[in-house]
Amino acid sequence: MRRPKRERFLDGMLHWVGLGATLFGLLVLTVLLVDVSLDGLPRLSWDFLTSYPSRRPEQAGILSALVGSLWLLSLTALIAFPLGVGAAIYLEEYAGRTKWSRWVEINVANLAAVPSIIYGLLGLEIFVRALFAVTNGRSVLSGALTMSLLVLPVIVLASREAIHSVPNSVREAAYALGGTRWQVVRDHVLPLAFPGILTGTILALSRAIGETAPLITIGALTYIAFLPPLSLEGLRTPFTVLPIQIFNWISRPQKGFHVNAAAGILVLLAVLFLMNATAIYLRYRSQRRLEL
């Protein structure tokens, strides 16, 4: 009986090769993080966070990029969250299985897979050029509108899933008491789905904060030496964001800027980590509450 022995060997092979494949990705991730940390950690300082960009790498900082990212993030959240949740409510609670709702569904699924740079082309043509009067061209508002369209499908998908997981018995009970559709959604479905919606939205926004390509396309600048005023007019000012600043520094030949890029990456990753940790914490807390 030679076969079983050979088979046991092959089975073991597949097991170990599979484990190796799984760990390969994690290994690369570790190497990446170590490499960036080694390059960037010594450069991190309070000055780096609070300085404007400069031609001299050792004086340059990420203040305007960091503030720009936060502006963009808040604006995108303000625009995309209500739109996404509204669309999800409509698809789950109102539309039923009509042709129209299937069409919207396919659209959302496809949009989630459209390359981000295509959204940049859309933003350039619509928000920067056609709506120039409103957005003042290459402004933070144009950027946020573009980003909102980019993250919208992700928010819709996550919110739908959260709404879908609300047990039907709750809806039935509420309708049977004479609740209108909106009363049922507002008082019962949304409160139960909210943690899931929030988690999904934060994850979607964390995608937005790392995006570079569409913002380059709509023309975010790399050299911004001022902060936008906290007003409606501030929405119409030019902007930059962390990933663009990092990209700019990477493309310079001097080693000093590469170090700056690594330090900027660390800041970007820290922001991302915070957002993801919040999302995971919210998910964990809502799971515990459902189990109680």
């Binding site: 991730l29 190497v31 990446l32 490499d35 960036v36 390059d39 964390s206 995608r207 904060i209 790392g210 995006e211 570079t212 390509a213 990933p243 990092i246 990209f247 990477i250 590469h258 890029a261 690594a262 990456i265 970007l268 990753l269 991302l272 993801n276």
Partner: peptide
């Protein structure tokens, strides 16, 4: 979830 610009850095400089 790692931003692609970070991967770009990694590809170019590592």
């Amino acid at each position: 979830g790692i931003p692609t610009v970070v991967y770009g850095y990694f590809a170019l400089l590592f």
